[in-house]
Design a protein around this nucleic acid. Structure first.
Length: 498
RNA sequence: GGGCCCAUAGCUCAGCUAGGUAGAGCAUCUGGCUUUUAACCAGGUGGUCGGGGGUCCGAAUCCCCCUGGGCCCGCCA
């Protein structure tokens, strides 16, 4: 059984939650969380469970540091909530600047999720009840944190970080007095003040905010990265607080491994080792990302390769699709589930009449879409899908295409040095092509005949064409290639080099 | 110091939740074919399931120990 379907063992209602901090560009590695959640959500619906799926944007988190992609001037914003500071391009606020492309990306990936900003939860008092309970049990809460996470909280610890009314930071305040719902603080900027913890004038610390979220929203299932799952980590403390303070069951956890960028290491926004999610799905087939995540077990890390590796993924996905429609064979008992969870439309898409790999060749030969459709024998059936696929193929080549898969025609007047055997072969071909039927198949046949009649090595023969036309030793299938270039063009180039 | 994940064919991985004759793709080999940006078709070879112990009629699967690799463990997320 598929991992997502095996995850649910009863028919109770599910509220599946995920959260990603919009503190920077959301990258492919971050997508594992939301897509794992989405796959679980869809699996629960398939099992006829009543379910909701929530994404919580942690926009109330403070800016931690000046990330490498930020100007140095951001030093002044460190410690302030992301939804209260400006974005790098001058727009406002910071959090929406990174949330917007992410939300667009979700749409393109067929992720239908309720989007909630944690700032709203504070503003609307949704956390008020949870906060009250935490304050009422402050002794017990701090003991749990200290015992399970094996750290000391210190004298001035409070279950709430107030925002300084003067400097706006929530990381520099020290609580001096607390009696729910009002708390007094002293800030290192010199200011002191009061704050109502039922409002958005501050924030719960992460280890309390997480279980408070479970309590306030009724979360039953939550996928999260392994960093939360370490012993003594935030899931451990959250679980205990859920059970002993809020008297609820902690959500069923699904811990997933990280996504690595092949050859580079773990994806991280702060190290620069990452691919922005919105950029990947613009420059590669979006369903490939869903396919990768639904096919792999969450517990396994994924070595992500947007170049040649992606082509293999596409080959595999096309094979799966064909197999689903009885046109190929794949021995994977989860074939149908994997395809369903990869789908961008809610149903399993038919395979296109052309592979992504072949399309990459066509878009390099032909400038106009009409020719690609004609030469690829694509028909009118999937016009808009094919249009989109062609655009993606072009962008993929520009963005991730490895050099040995790209080619450019040489200038029309370029001369290439050939051996006598090669020249003879070209001449033979020119002789034979005069009154041939100009179609990909017959071109292919004539090439083979010319190879035989000139006694040249087979591979040499093919190489000769590529050297004359694109200056490389390898290239696209010659029949289609020459056909697309046009008879006149081919004759011209060959005569010049014969 | 603590924790999690991974280890199954040359490579990438299924199979482990509920123990019952060890699987796929790629690579390789054989045969076919009018070879091309990692061609296609048919068939074959290939594994003490990391090591050791235990439970069991029976273990890749469950339990314990060990080894190797990856990752995590103040705050923040």
């Amino acid at each position: 059984m598929h991992w997502a379907e095996a995850f649910f063992t009863d028919d109770s209602e599910e509220i599946i939650a995920t959260g990603i901090s919009p503190s920077g560009p959301i990258h492919v590695g971050n997508m594992r969380e939301i897509l794992t959640g989405d796959i679980l959500f869809k699996a629960s619906l398939r099992k006829k469970k009543k379910s909701r799926f929530i994404y919580l944007g942690d926009d109330a988190d403070p800016l931690r540091k000046v990330y490498p992609f930020l100007p140095q001037s951001y030093t002044e914003y460190i410690g302030k909530p992301l939804y209260k500071i400006p974005a790098p391009d001058g727009s406002f606020p910071y959090s929406e600047y990174y949330l917007t492309p992410f939300i667009e990306t979700l749409g393109k990936l067929n992720v239908k999720v309720e989007i909630i900003r944690s700032s709203e939860l504070y503003k609307n008092g949704v956390f008020a009840e949870a906060t009250k309970i935490l304050f009422e049990n402050i002794e017990k809460v701090s003991r749990i944190l200290e015992e399970i996470s094996k750290r000391e909280l210190g004298e001035n610890w409070a279950p709430y970080n107030p925002e300084c009314s003067k400097c706006g930071k929530i990381t520099t305040t020290t609580v001096t007095e607390l009696s729910f719902p009002i708390l007094k603080y002293q800030c290192s900027c010199g200011n002191s003040g009061e704050c109502d913890v039922r409002t958005d004038k501050g924030k719960l610390p992460w280890r309390l905010e997480w279980p408070a979220k479970w309590f306030s929203l009724g979360v039953t299932t939550e996928p999260f990265g392994k960093d939360h799952g370490a012993s003594g980590g935030s899931y451990d403390t959250g679980k205990k607080i859920a059970e002993e303070i809020f008297h609820i069951r902690a959500p069923k956890p699904l811990m997933f491994e990280r996504i690595l960028l092949k050859g580079k290491g773990v994806m991280h926004s702060s190290t620069g080792i990452n691919i922005a999610a919105h950029s990947f799905i613009e420059n590669a087939p979006p369903e490939s990302l869903r396919f990768i995540l639904s096919k792999n077990q969450p517990s396994r890390h994924i070595s992500f390769d947007p170049g040649l590796g992606l082509l293999n993924i596409m080959d595999e996905m096309e094979k799966y699709r064909k197999a689903f429609f009885g046109l190929d064979k794949v021995s994977d008992e989860n074939l149908e589930s994997i395809l369903f969870f990869s789908s961008l439309t809610g149903k399993i898409e038919k395979p296109l009449p052309i592979s992504f790999r072949h399309l990459l060749t066509l878009v390099q030969i032909y400038k106009d879409e009409a020719s690609i459709v004609r030469l690829g024998n694509l028909g009118d059936e999937n016009k808009s899908v094919i249009h989109e696929e062609i655009e993606i193929a072009k962008r993929w080549l520009d963005t991730y295409g490895p050099d040995d898969i790209k080619f450019k025609l040489l200038n029309e007047d370029a001369r290439v040095k050939l051996t006598p055997e090669e020249s003879k072969f070209i001449s033979n071909f020119l002789g034979e092509m005069k009154d041939m039927d100009w179609s990909p198949e017959s071109i292919h046949n004539v090439i083979h005949e010319s190879i035989k009649s000139s006694g040249i090595d087979q591979q040499e023969g093919f190489c000769t064409f590529y050297r004359v036309l694109i200056g490389k030793d390898k290239g696209p299938r010659l029949g289609y290639f020459l056909f697309g270039l046009g008879k006149d063009y081919v004759i011209k180039r060959l005569q010049l080099n014969a």
